[in-house]
Design a protein around this nucleic acid. Structure first.
Lengths: 207, 207
DNA sequence: ACCAAAATTAACCAAATGGTTAAAAAAAAA
DNA sequence: TTTTTTTTTAACCATTTGGTTAATTTTGGT
């Protein structure tokens, strides 16, 4: 019943994930991964062949997290403002759970754009954007929100959600925050970001 | 009058900057830098001693760009909405000029938070935030904007400005954008982001 | 108990890599 | 021109690193 014995593969993957997300592909060392997993380096190769293969595996997992459920929420059939709240909530939950995932994924995509194209192909985000655009155009016509494209709005939402996690050490240093203060700041964001976005696009009812 | 003969040091630095920003400290190769500069590898050491020293030099330069003028604008004595426009404009100009600077700096700060602490110490951003907070508190009391902390507002501004550059290849892939479309998207942002932020905090005058 | 298959390890290996050295070439000083 | 200093290079070197091999241990079936 110990948290141990999770299967060697799992243990190695866990160690590899930590190493790769922290130091990147070129910065991570197979020996370090083996040490962190408490096993011989050869065993890592025994299970995962090569560093590249292992990295690709980790990347695929992390990449999946990045967009999980996003397309579904974006194209779901709920009111716009509610939807914005949902997206932000989803993002924040995901990011709180995997704080160093986005920087890792962004780095890899930046360094090997071709390799990631494939995975992207089957991602329905771009399609979901179409229905999202329809909804937004409807609201604009109805005069409830200001003119904005679905693309720009989505980028704004993701920027406000993701950036504070990507730039965590930066923000902590520049704004002189302790870990506690940083977490508090994130908590405030969870509550305020959606409202911030909604305010930004909402047209106030004249009284 | 050719653009050549800019001094070997400059040439090396340029090649090093490209290598380090693209591949990171561990991913960049001294041999590649020498090749890109069209010189012998030993000459790189002759001028810059070690890889670490060279990297530190590049990092310092890039890091400087990240915050140049920011503190000054933040604590300047101009109306809030105007100031927001100024900050966004400053960010956008800077980022258009050095598109891969923020990801590079963020990565390095993430991987070596201690090392960067020093440079941060003398950065007056944190101080500038105090006067910025005063200005915001004033506006809130006057009932012109919604309640928000200077910290959160600044993070929002920087998120909306920086993230689209940090996540460029990501966005291009996910949203199926060509380089041309991406640039167009950035252009739109230059015009709209400040307004987006101002709308988000502004309290409409009742009629 | 015995044996075959799977798991695990220690010892190596070859290539890559940051760095050094000593000599040559170029530039500057005399 | 000669000498001295600076710049540049080719040849090495030591270490690191991803990966392999062969042997050992463990496991599971008979």
């Amino acid at each position: 019943m110990k948290p141990k014995e999770a299967g060697k593969e799992e243990i190695i993957l866990k160690a590899a994930r930590k190493a790769f997300t922290q130091k990147g592909l070129s910065g991570a060392r197979m020996q370090d991964i083996a040490d962190a997993a408490g096993i011989n380096k050869s065993l890592v190769h025994y299970y995962f062949e090569s560093k590249e293969k292992l990295f690709a595996l980790i990347f695929e997992q992390e990449f999946g997290k990045f967009f999980s459920n996003l397309a579904a929420v974006i194209s779901s059939d709920i009111p716009l403002f509610e939807k914005i709240e949902q997206i932000v909530l989803l993002d924040m939950e995901r990011l709180s759970q995997f704080p160093d995932m986005p920087l890792f994924v962004i780095n890899e995509v930046s360094r090997h754009p071709e390799m990631t194209m494939k995975r992207l192909k089957q991602l329905p985000v771009s399609d979901a954007l179409v229905s999202f655009q329809k909804q937004i155009s409807g609201e604009i016509k109805r005069g409830t929100i200001n003119k904005i494209s679905a693309e720009q709005l989505l980028i704004n939402i993701q920027s406000l959600s993701i950036f504070p996690f990507v730039a965590k050490p930066m923000l902590k240093n520049v704004l002189r925050m302790s870990e506690k203060q940083y977490k508090a700041m994130i908590l405030v964001r969870k509550k305020e970001v959606a409202g911030f976005i909604i305010n930004a696009i909402r047209i106030n009812v004249k009284m």
